[in-house]
């Protein structure tokens, strides 16, 4: 008996160690990538790099228009996708009955999330740039990114809304609340942290994508800041692609500096989402 207990204990500890090791191997490549980009990119970061226009065919100067462009595209995407996504999630979670139509909508959302981003890019080119005559512009690119981001926002928001206990709704209705009062005063505020997390993760993906903006709004080289939504713009991910593959004799440092700025942009959104989530967990009263 004693021996088998000892054996089991050993097996258990072996199993634990193995799992820990496996977990570490997944973290390791991520740390490698981040560490390498920081090491190679950090020397390029300077005030000039962040605040100046590119010069000498992008081989010198800064990347300001790409930073500002990505910021504009992210904001533009948020303007379209956030209200629409949250509204759709509220409809699906709070109002829609389980019918053929709503099932169809859910299936569509799941499938939309799986479409390769370059397909969104082509779709945006056809619909927004050509058919609606928005041209290659921040507007067209933002709309394209919005369509790509919507499924993420809808799914995450719907999940957050559904996680709010049903009993809150019943109590609110029993106290003379309308359904909309119940949603606005209880369900939405309680789901908000989850919704925000989903929104940020969706926008983060939009900020880092190249393919959807490639044909719809990204400029190869445009050393000035856009001054209307109808302007094309430089953007960090596309700029990175351009300087890494399209420009001969490109200084290594500028490539990695650009990558680092994009990484910081995206990671800080991620960190904000994580902080919101953990704060809300700690404060949650159910």
């Amino acid at each position: 008996m004693k021996r088998s207990y000892a054996n089991r204990d050993l097996i258990q500890r072996l199993g634990f160690s193995l799992l820990t090791l496996l977990a570490l191997t997944t973290v390791f490549p991520i740390l490698m990538v981040v560490g390498y980009i920081i090491k190679e990119g950090a020397p390029a970061i300077s005030w000039e790099f962040l605040s100046a226009m590119p010069r000498d065919g992008m081989r010198a100067g800064g990347i300001l228009p790409a930073i500002v462009g990505t910021l504009y595209l992210t904001i533009g995407t948020a303007i379209f996708s956030v209200p629409l996504g949250i509204a759709a999630a509220i409809y699906l979670s709070e109002y829609a009955r389980d019918t053929f139509l709503t099932r169809l909508i859910r299936i569509a959302i799941i499938n939309l999330a799986g479409i390769p981003s370059v397909v969104y890019g082509l779709f945006g080119l056809g619909l927004f740039v050509i058919f609606l005559r928005f041209g290659t512009s921040i507007l067209a690119a933002s709309l394209t990114l919005s369509i790509m981001t919507l499924p993420v926002i809808i799914s995450a928001s719907e999940e957050a809304l559904r996680a709010v206990p049903q009993a809150f709704r019943t109590v609110s209705i029993s106290l003379g609340g309308t359904q909309w009062q119940t949603i606005r005063r209880i369900v939405l505020p309680q789901a908000l942290p989850g919704i925000l997390t989903g929104v940020i993760l969706g926008l983060e993906r939009a900020a880092g994508e190249t393919a959807p903006i490639l044909f719809t709004g990204a400029a190869f080289f445009l050393p000035r800041l856009p001054d209307s939504p109808m302007d094309a713009t430089m953007a960090l991910p596309y700029h990175l692609f351009v300087i890494s593959t399209q420009v001969p004799e490109m200084p290594f440092q500028i490539q990695y500096g650009t990558a680092l700025v994009l990484l910081i942009f995206v990671l800080s959104m991620n960190i904000i989402a994580t902080v919101i989530r953990s704060r809300a967990r700690a404060k949650r009263q159910w």
């Binding site: 009993a167 809150f168 019943t170 109590v171 609110s172 209705i173 029993s174 106290l175 003379g176």
Partner: peptide, 16 residues
């Protein structure tokens, strides 16, 4: 009607 007819449930559900 629901303001005139209040209801208390089996499990106490306090709102957050």
């Amino acid at each position: 009607l629901r303001r005139k007819v209040g209801m208390v449930f089996a499990r106490p559900v306090v709102l957050p």
